[in-house]
Design a binder for these strands. Structure first.
Lengths: 372, 372
DNA sequence: CTGAAAGCGCTAACAA
DNA sequence: TTGTTAGCGCTTTCAG
């Protein structure tokens, strides 16, 4: 930072050229022999300030390295430019995509994201939310845990908020999500149509709104196809890689293993694939599988993973735009708004009709309606 | 939130039970007939306050839903509990892992992360950094762009800071990174040892510190093995999926395509794999490939991708711990500290000796020192 | 067109 | 053990 030579006020001690002590509007004012309010107004482009003064102020501010103190502005009653983003796990492709899209939205409107990772732990979530409130964030975008603490709910409800994917009525917040039930039904239907009967669903606990909807879609497919649900298997647990891997191992080990598996979470899918890979299970000859979500590498798993694909990025962008608009206009709809995005089944190479015998067969049927 | 019945001060209008107007320490004080400072001290667990009052205050604060205003605290001179995390792209597994690890660190120490995604755009970076300074963050953890703007550098240098992966001397900041040059040399060496001569490197521009180090390691391997570097091919560009895909396509299309490719970025690797998959290139029979980084799905690409693996999570955790410690103790080392983490070559199924003829051969040699 | 001053909510120095 | 008060840096009346 070059020190300007204009030594109009070199008498005033520590006139902000000290280097480290943060430069305040006061300092700029002294430097120019003006008052603080003029500085503030000039920088806010107030029409009452003469163009000449404005440029003078702007240049001085620039050269002194003045950066407005947002804390002070917030304290005056203005809400901050910080938006809380509360989600379970940023390594999950789902949430990374969401964060990226929201970050782009926020950036365009001058907002920043405070990233809070809950690991689906309600205590952690409560702490994080409290901190966000303390920081006086403008609002919160949240993928809530299955059962948030009462305090967390109360705090969330005291701010502008929107929920993503998981829809908790207790939050009475607007929601952007996917048609969990229908897409899971479509995926299951695909397997039933291929002739599978012993179909297993591995997914999140039904205490999660999404978990409940997905397992419900799974069951609905059986009813819809007139198939006896007795042959359906359900493994419900945490939406983690570990759970997926264990559940798949359990299913493979049992006396009459399923001929097809459908998963209800990206992480669970990962775990299942890991187990199938480790055990060298022949897919789809011995076992068909339908995944959940569609990170880029799903198409490289064996001949390509048949999966339920959802436009997460679009979903997040829609959510971000809508939320920021609401923040700015303060408009609060009476009933929470709900926006549902449709998912679609992408058929690749991991689903086929079941083998006639329980051993590995040579049959390898090519299917290909939505092949991509 | 239940309203407590203690109507000691029901006369004071709007005694904070109004529901929406944020509850201040003042409000709690009035509610209890105490002074603000007593409230502040009680909540700060000051020894001068009687235990009885402390509990009384704490309960009242709780039931009224009081949350301290951090902006006010910051304005009094305390630094905020916000740490800026500036990185190019959160969908990149590298950076997602880093964010996750740092978030865990910060959370443990009561800090929060402000996520800023630069997309490797220096203008965007400059804007984000300025906003972080305006927000009076306690410090910044940054993966800088190749060539940050002068203003951005100046601002960064005015705060506690640490750089990850990319090491820019201009920042004169502590750095946590990997031994880019050596690991790339090892990967290339592996290919040369297998007998490859026409080896291609596809990676980031040398304007990036990491890009420069990696390409330099690539070249060093040739020198080290006494192989004529004339047969080496270099494709340097942006560290994106698109560039990787295009570069690979270009290499395959040329008259005498390389018999092996080594990549210098996770995203580039993704692009290359995409092209190889689309063109149905026989790997490793027709072409050997060494990837960069090790997201979980690399081991599922064909027979498993041979790759340069680095303990990113440990790196980020080390960085976070060290940085937060520095923030708290204000200790500033004279010379910037540099911490280098070693990467390792993981040999899986995508590297083999080159085919004798230019066409596909049947030879498929199993290699397996570090197989995993 | 510009200046003076109040006040946002909190902490810490000074009183009692 | 508790109360009073000044002041952090900014915006925003109200006065010139």
């Amino acid at each position: 930072m070059k020190k300007t030579g204009h030594s109009q006020q070199m008498l005033t001690f520590a006139s902000a050229a000290k280097g480290d002590a943060t430069v305040t509007a006061q300092a700029v004012a002294r430097h120019l022999g003006l008052s603080v309010s003029t500085i503030g107004r000039a920088l806010a482009d107030d029409p009452r300030i003469s163009p000449a003064t404005k440029t003078r102020v702007r240049e001085a501010a620039e050269s002194l390295g003045y950066v407005a103190n947002e804390a002070a502005r917030v304290m005056r009653g203005g809400s901050s430019k910080l938006v809380g983003l509360v989600l379970p796990d940023i390594r999950n492709d789902f949430y990374a995509t969401i964060a990226q899209a929201l970050s782009a939205c926020c950036d365009r409107e001058g907002y920043r994201l405070a990233l809070c990772i809950t690991e689906d732990d309600r205590e952690l979530e409560a702490r994080q939310v409290k901190e966000l409130v303390a920081a006086r964030v403008a609002g919160i975008i949240v993928v809530p845990t299955a059962n948030p603490r009462r305090e967390a709910l109360a705090m969330l409800c005291s701010l502008p908020r929107v929920q993503l994917l998981r829809n908790l009525p207790a939050l009475s917040a607007d929601w952007f999500g996917i048609d969990d039930e229908h897409c899971m039904q479509a995926g299951t239907r695909h397997l039933l149509d291929l002739g599978h009967r012993r179909v297993a669903y591995i997914g999140g606990e039904p205490s999660l709104p999404t978990g409940a909807a997905r397992v419900s879609g799974f069951r609905a497919a059986f009813r819809g196809a007139g198939v006896d649900p007795a042959s359906a298997v359900e493994e419900l647990g945490s939406t983690t890689v570990a759970f997926g891997a264990q559940a798949a191992a359990r299913l493979l080990a049992c006396g009459t293993p399923p001929t097809a598996i459908i998963t209800g979470s990206v992480q669970v899918t990962l775990g299942v694939l890991e187990t199938l890979h480790a055990r060298k299970v022949a897919v789809p000859d011995q076992l068909s599988i339908v995944g959940f979500g569609d990170p880029s590498w799903f198409k490289w798993w064996r001949e390509g993973l048949t999966t339920l694909q959802m436009p997460i990025e679009e979903l997040a962008t829609a959510c971000g735009l809508w939320f920021l608009n609401r923040l700015r206009s303060k408009s609060v709809g009476q009933r929470p708004h709900a926006s549902i995005t449709r998912a679609s089944l992408v058929i690749r190479g991991t689903t086929a009709p079941p083998a006639k015998t329980s051993s590995i067969t040579m049959a390898r049927v090519a299917i290909g309606t939505t092949k991509r």
